[in-house]
Design a protein around this nucleic acid. Structure first.
Lengths: 244, 244
DNA sequence: TATGTCTATATGTATGAACATATAGATACT
DNA sequence: AGTATCTATATGTTCATACATATAGACATA
């Protein structure tokens, strides 16, 4: 029984501290398995704070649908957070990780290119502005699985010498001191042309899952335009959707 | 200037009424264009309720990132809610609706079938239990676009005589007095076989976007297993992802 | 056995109050 | 003009309190 404590003098608001506490607490297998969390009143008393403050913290997790409250009963962890917990961004690594398969970077190309019409309109920048373009081919031991192309908004001040072999969004957060926040995605199916067939080691005419993604910062300004071509035979694109 | 009113005697909670009010309010072009919402204190006074209650309502929209609050300044509508507002479910109708294209149901087949291994495991029901199977082909004037297959968990008490031409999830909410809540999706690309080519009016070997979806109730119990085959040439599957 | 009623429990709703703090604009000073 | 300081404003945080209501289980009844 860890004695959780609250620091009344911290610059970090109480509800925020409680939120962190809860996030750690619900990692506990007991709670993952459906055990009810300590009730609000007890929890407040125990932590020496108001019930409202506990509630404020809990609310956030409820809105994230990490927790489920039930009147008269209690609060418990929402099931199937196996993937809910993983950031939805990581959907690509998803299946692989579950199978414990290691990733391999097959190819990596970084360079500055002039923004074409599509990119400059999307980013709201002048035509032919230099933007950083990143190409990657990733896969597992048996071969490549996906071909990525990323374009970064100039707002993201990158030198091109960053370590792009690290998970991309993690890196962005650190370098760009901001948090990527909203993404729009479009997915469709296409047939591999000659270039793609070489890159993904498949035959021309094989089905390919094509994904376009726009990544935005919290203010909803675009920071990355990302194209992904996935081998359809060895990869399924997985998404968890929640509804408000 | 519409005089918004609050009904203290309604069974609908005040904060919920305020939430609705806010949702309507922010449709207003002024607010869409960045005008600050009425401040919390005034609003509370105006509506004859507590500031906290107003705040509770606002919180929800903030968590949905529909609103942005700024200390010392005010609260305003977050930008680009064009698609954020639409429920993520509606992703299919998405593109079409924007273009104002009318949908057409090409084919509809409803019947009871014995659950095969895959279905019975997914639903956690005995092998060969009878489940309702629904097949639909939808499209626009120029031809079919998607071929749906749905299997419903017996828990969802359907007679098979419901009006399946209505939007599916809307119907489910009404009939099944519960709200569909979480969905897992897997998307991949395949090539049309003979059967599919006939159904979607394309050639064999044409690319098809294949989507599997599991729809769950708020308690995370599966209620529907849904397969969708989309013509890739005329449809892009669109998703908005948000990150906590 | 089945059904109905009571009851403790936990969340849901709502209020009013107080003080903290970031922001933008006004004001005063150099 | 340029800079520093003050100030009104609106949100941010936190509290104590009160009553409403859904739920599950215990208990009693037909």
């Amino acid at each position: 029984m860890t004695a959780f404590k609250i620091d009344h003098d911290s610059s970090n608001p109480l509800h925020s501290q409680v939120e962190d506490l809860l996030r750690k607490l619900i990692e506990n297998p007991e709670y993952q398995n459906g055990k009810l969390l300590p009730n609000e009143v007890d929890m407040a008393k125990h932590l020496g704070i108001s019930r409202n403050t506990v509630r404020q913290a809990t609310n956030k997790l409820v809105y994230e649908s990490l927790l489920i409250r039930k009147k008269g009963v209690g609060t418990k962890v929402a099931k199937n957070n196996i993937s809910t917990k993983l950031n939805k961004w990581t959907s690509f690594t998803h299946e692989m990780d579950e199978k414990g398969v290691a990733f391999k970077v097959y190819s990596l190309k970084v360079g500055w290119v002039a923004a074409d019409k599509r990119i400059s309109e999307l980013f709201g920048i002048p035509h032919k502005t230099k933007v950083l373009k990143l190409e990657r081919i990733r896969g597992i031991h048996s071969g490549p699985i996906v071909y990525f192309i990323s374009y970064f908004h100039p707002r993201v001040e990158l030198t091109g010498k960053e370590d792009f072999s690290k998970p991309l969004y993690e890196m962005l957060e650190k370098e760009y001191h901001s948090v990527a926040s909203i993404s729009k995605e479009g997915i469709s199916a296409i047939l591999a042309d000659h270039e793609l067939s070489l890159k993904l080691n498949i035959k021309e005419g094989d089905p390919v899952l094509f994904r376009k993604r726009i990544v935005c910062d919290p203010g909803d300004r675009p920071i990355e335009y990302n194209l992904g071509y996935y081998r359809a035979d060895s990869f399924t694109y997985t998404i968890d959707i929640e509804r408000g």
